[in-house]
Design a protein around this nucleic acid. Structure first.
Lengths: 201, 201
DNA sequence: GTCTATAGTAAGATAGAC
DNA sequence: GTCTATCTTACTATAGAC
């Protein structure tokens, strides 16, 4: 089925793939449909032929990305079969591995949600899943004195924040682009250890 | 000098203040000069009369905000007169107090820098200041085995990340808007304690 | 300094040929 | 399905009256 030529993907898919790239890099407001068409190597009119409008195309991409970002976390913290320490290890591993491949993802999703909070409230019942997760139960057991949200903020902050600030720190020369991946690989091991000590302090 | 009327501020300043508000809320690409004019309660033409163009006005605001965000951190970590633990306490205090007042600041600056890294590279010599800071020296003393950048990422992640994700977590109902400030006040005390244990693990 | 009116342009979307 | 050409709108910026 797939030709040896360069394009074994359909035009429709090529446009969507281009949209993923341009939207996540520049955000909704700053991208022009012409950018996407060019990136996809097709004409502007085809974009509207397949996806009707810029907004409709964006909604497809945004839904995917929200799903992707929260889809990493929720199964891990909800898994009743694992202990707390395993959850912390898995969370660090999943986020760091995935964000090394998709470094623009968090800043993109966070920026767009800020301007349109409906994206989060309507999509996934994050609040309910979190509150009823075994993660919350397990944290409460260990630290009944503290709001469990602190530990969610801590692990996500330590894993995700470096990706959000990467353009800043590499741009400023605080971290070299080459070293960034190495630092994050180190963190994958360190964060669960640090989290453990925090839970005991 | 100041009239009892509502405007003891000049038109020029009112426009700038409106620009601060709109730009930081919506980002450069999504704000229209008409939004700023309306927010300032003046006519569109006056914006160009005082500030020449949208871009020039933006540059003023952006410079301020970059300065503001890094200006909180750099003096604290560079202060040769304080110990490491004091630096951690001060950092948490300064960031959390200031970001409670300006919650949009970090996401705004991070988003705009992503799309225009020149903003960071040209402004402040962050890398040099960081490398030569007494913070780095003190961390290296305690933990010669680890890259000091880890601890900068940790404290900033724990302090700043909650503000970056606030729209997500409040939008999703994970944290109630009312509780957010309380949680951050708790963190102001907890983060230095947690950081201390991390440095010893 | 401040306004109204408008010029100029850029961007999203569509018509219609092939 | 894919293209070129064009319509329409929305936005930045300016000209000119007061």
């Amino acid at each position: 089925m797939s030709r040896v030529k360069e394009k074994d993907t359909s035009t429709e898919e090529r446009i969507l793939e281009a949209a993923r790239k341009v939207f996540t890099q520049k955000g909704y407001a700053a991208t022009r449909t012409r950018d996407i068409a060019e990136e996809a190597g097709i004409n502007l009119a085809l974009l509207n032929y397949y996806y009707r409008s810029k907004e409709k195309l964006f909604e497809l991409v945004m839904s995917e990305k929200v799903e992707q970002l929260f889809g990493m976390l929720l199964p891990v913290i909800s898994d009743a079969a694992t202990g707390l320490q395993t959850k912390l290890e898995k969370t660090a591993e999943v986020y760091i591995d995935n964000l090394i491949k998709h470094p623009d993802l968090p800043l993109f999703v966070l920026s767009e949600i800020r301007q349109n909070p409906h994206w989060i409230s309507s999509k996934i019942p994050v609040a309910a899943i979190f509150r009823e997760s075994s993660f919350v139960r397990q944290v409460k057991e260990k630290r009944p004195d503290l709001n469990p949200i602190h530990f969610l903020l801590n692990i996500l902050g330590m894993c995700v924040f470096p990706f959000v600030t990467r353009p800043v720190f590499t741009g400023a020369g605080v971290i070299k682009e080459k070293d960034f991946k190495k630092v994050m690989e180190e963190r994958k091991k360190l964060i669960p250890i640090w989290m453990k000590t925090m839970l005991e302090t």
